Simulated assay, not measured.
Amino acid sequence: MGFLVSGIHHVAIICSDYQRSKAFYHEQLGFKIIQETYRQERDSYKLDMAVDEHTQIELFSFPDAPVRASFPEAQGLRHLAFKTTKLDETVNYLIRQGISVENIRLDEITGKRFTFFQDPDGLPLELYEV
């Protein structure tokens, strides 16, 4: 029997400014809030948001969390990619939200179009057209 996984449940992100990142992911990107929890003993928020019916983002705030080691080629998670069937419309939406988006590129291996933008802490986020 192999590794019994059916998909990705969530991606966890630690932010530097909770209110700013909450506004970015919820208000600007439109992810639905499932639950918001303040953990007093940790002075920390945990915000669960639905990306779609199968995938969530957990947004955490921790006092004095270290900054990202380097950008963008530090070891560990390189970027988070969101799939879209309407890349041009999605890019235009982000631009209208005041979010800077790189030029659309073509994946030389798959022939698919993609682009990158950043969250408020500089986390690289990708839009990948499927």
Rank of each mutant, 00 (worst) to 15 (best):
K46F: 03
E129H: 01
D88A: 10
V51T: 07
E27D: 15
E89Y: 05
A65H: 06
K46V: 07
P124G: 09
E108Y: 05
S16I: 03
I34W: 10
K46G: 02
E27A: 12
Y93L: 06
A50H: 10
E36P: 00
D17V: 07
K46Q: 12
F116E: 02
K86I: 08
I57F: 09
H10L: 09
D88E: 11
I109Q: 15
D121G: 03
T110R: 15
E41F: 10
A81H: 14
Y128N: 02
L47C: 01
A50M: 12
L106C: 11
D121W: 03
I104L: 06
I8W: 06
S61H: 02
H26M: 07
F117N: 00
K86Y: 12
E73P: 01
A69D: 13
T85Y: 11
P66A: 04
G30K: 03
S16E: 14
A50G: 11
Q19G: 12
E129Q: 10
R68M: 09
H54I: 11
A50D: 14
L127Q: 06
N103E: 14
R96G: 08
F60D: 00
R105P: 00
V130I: 12
T85W: 10
F82I: 08
P120L: 10
D64L: 01
E27G: 02
Q19F: 08
S44A: 10
D107M: 06
L29T: 01
D119Q: 07
R96S: 09
I33H: 01
K46A: 08
T85G: 14
R39M: 09
F82S: 07
K83W: 12
I8L: 13
V91Y: 06
L29H: 07
G98Y: 02
K32Y: 08
L77R: 13
A50L: 13
I13R: 06
V5S: 05
P124R: 15
S61T: 05
L125N: 01
L4V: 04
E102F: 10
H9S: 13
E41M: 09
L80T: 07
N103P: 08
E27C: 08
E102H: 12
E73M: 14
D121E: 05
N92P: 03
S16F: 01
F31Q: 03
